[in-house]
Design a protein around this nucleic acid. Structure first.
Length: 332
DNA sequence: GGAGTCTTTGCGAGTAAGGG
DNA sequence: CCCTTACTCGCAAAGACTCC
């Protein structure tokens, strides 16, 4: 089944809020206005919104058909999920969401379950940001209440994020590790993230291999996928990542980059420096250093010392044709 | 040793970006 | 607009590991 609260995210939540301050990606920041993005883009988004609205409406209809009634709940009795999926968003994102809900209202309910140990309290399956915003507004939270096990809760929570595809690879890796640390079975974690066991294995491998502090310094890197995170994982092997990278990570230049650029900067800092090869001196039969040769993977450079052998360079150039024919005979 | 689970590796499909 | 390239993602298969 499709995502159930598309409408709320489109109309109530700032799009693509990110987990933490460094994870608050500029490309993923709230965009409450259409300024500067063009008429075509606005039309495209309108069409997407219409589609999303109809899907959300259908999902809502399903909920009503299943007998799930929307109730108004005091936000002060609503707790967070047992497992955080995203870290809290930035103040700017929260403020934008508050304003959006203030203007449009909460159009689609959040999903809660009765608190397993505290009567008259609830835990959030999804809709954390809306709950926080409504709390700030002092308004009741419109919510669907459903009894769920811990497994069902994290699956509902994970699917709400996972099916949106707006969680980057590393965000999903962190979530997978968090769930595994809470001793959820891999089947459950895989369901929550909508990934197969292979991908789950990779997510957990990367999520554990790369220090959390480094991940948070880089941010969600939405354009950076599995392969490059795994490359980073291998680059980090045997290194004190935080110690070695501290000067880079703390630099203003690094922090001013977007998340994907920060990822590339870290990779560049960790990548082995290509060995600088000194040009090799070529000495003639009469003992003169006539030329130097520099060999690289993609090219070989021959530099003739015109002071030592005036005109020799031009002589060699003039004979390139016959040398090449001789070369072809040797390689045939 | 067998069964189940997890990890690793390779490959192909799909997609977005860039260049001609 | 089409082609190429780079990239992500998921699937399949084999190997490694753990438990009984």
């Amino acid at each position: 089944m499709g995502r159930k609260n598309l409408l709320s995210d489109l109309l109530s939540d700032p799009p693509q809020a990110a987990p933490s301050a460094p994870l608050a990606e500029e490309g993923r920041a709230p965009q409450p206005t259409l300024g500067g993005r063009g008429v075509v883009g606005a039309m495209s988004r309108s069409l997407e919104r219409l589609t999303a609205e109809s899907e959300a409406a259908r999902a809502l209809a399903d909920q009503f058909a299943n007998g799930e009634t929307v109730l108004e709940i005091d936000p002060s009795v609503i707790d967070a999920s047992i497992v955080p999926d995203r870290m809290p968003g930035t103040d700017e994102e929260h403020e934008a969401l508050v304003q959006s809900i203030s203007a449009n209202g909460q159009l689609v309910p959040v999903l809660l379950r009765p608190h397993p140990s505290q009567p008259a309290r609830y835990q959030t399956a999804y809709g954390h940001r809306r709950v926080r915003a409504l709390k700030a507004l002092g308004r009741p939270v419109r919510a669907v209440i459903r009894k769920m096990t811990d497994e069902e809760l994290v699956v509902a929570q994970g699917k709400e994020n996972g099916e949106r595809k707006d969680l980057s690879f590393i965000e999903r890796a962190i979530y997978a590790v968090t769930l595994e640390d809470r001793e959820f079975k891999r089947d459950t974690i895989g369901s929550a993230l909508s990934v197969d066991k292979t991908e789950l294995s990779r997510l957990i491998s990367v999520g554990r291999a790369i220090p959390r502090a480094l991940i948070e310094a880089i941010g969600p890197a939405p354009k950076t996928g599995r392969r490059r995170w795994m490359e980073l994982e291998s680059l980090l092997q045997g290194k004190d990542a935080i110690g070695d990278l501290a000067p880079l990570i703390s630099s203003q230049a690094f922090r001013s980059k977007n998340s994907d650029a920060r990822f590339l900067a870290v990779c560049a800092a960790l990548a082995p420096r290509p060995q600088r090869t000194e040009p090799e001196s070529w000495t003639s039969v009469d003992g003169k250093a006539v030329a130097s040769i520099e060999r690289k993977t993609e090219k070989t450079t021959l530099a003739v010392n015109e002071k030592v052998a005036p005109g020799f360079g031009e002589f060699v150039v003039g004979r390139l044709g016959e040398l090449y024919v001789e070369y072809l005979k040797g390689t045939a």
